[in-house]
Simulated assay, not measured.
Amino acid sequence: MTRFVIAGDHPALPGHFPGRPIVPGVVVLDRVLEAIEAAHGPLGVLRLPQVKFLRPLLPGEPAQVAIEPVQSAQPGAAASRWRFRVERAGELIASGEVAAA
Rank of each mutant, 00 (worst) to 15 (best):
F84Y: 08
A100R: 06
P59C: 07
V65S: 12
R55F: 12
P62I: 06
F17M: 01
V23Y: 11
Q71C: 02
H10G: 03
F4N: 13
F17R: 12
P11N: 14
H40A: 12
P59T: 14
S80R: 09
L46Q: 05
D9C: 10
G60M: 02
L43S: 06
E37P: 02
G41C: 01
F53I: 00
L58N: 09
A100F: 05
G60W: 01
V23Q: 04
H16K: 04
P14Y: 00
L54T: 06
P59K: 10
P49C: 02
A7E: 13
L92V: 10
V98G: 06
A66R: 15
G90F: 09
G44K: 00
K52S: 12
V23A: 07
A39F: 00
R81C: 09
L92W: 15
G60R: 01
A35I: 04
P24N: 06
A12H: 11
H40W: 01
R31Q: 15
L57W: 13
A38L: 12
E37K: 00
V51M: 06
P11H: 10
P62S: 10
A38M: 07
V70I: 07
P49K: 07
L57I: 02
V26P: 03
R83M: 05
F17G: 10
P11E: 15
I67R: 14
G90Y: 09
P42G: 11
E34N: 00
A94W: 08
W82P: 03
E97K: 01
F84W: 11
I6M: 06
P56E: 06
S95D: 12
F84M: 09
A89G: 14
A39V: 02
I36K: 08
L48E: 10
Q50S: 07
V27P: 01
P11S: 15
F53C: 05
A63S: 10
V27A: 04
P49S: 04
E34I: 06
W82C: 03
S72E: 11
R81D: 00
L46R: 03
I36V: 15
V27K: 11
Q50E: 15
P69S: 03
L54P: 02
K52R: 15
L92K: 13
A100L: 05
P11K: 14
P62G: 07
E68F: 01
A89P: 11
A66Q: 13
I22H: 02
G44A: 13
R83Y: 01
P14L: 08
A35E: 11
H40P: 10
A77S: 03
F4L: 09
P75T: 13
P49V: 00
A7F: 01
V86T: 14
T2W: 13
E87H: 12
R20T: 08
A78Q: 11
A79D: 03
E68Q: 14
V70D: 01
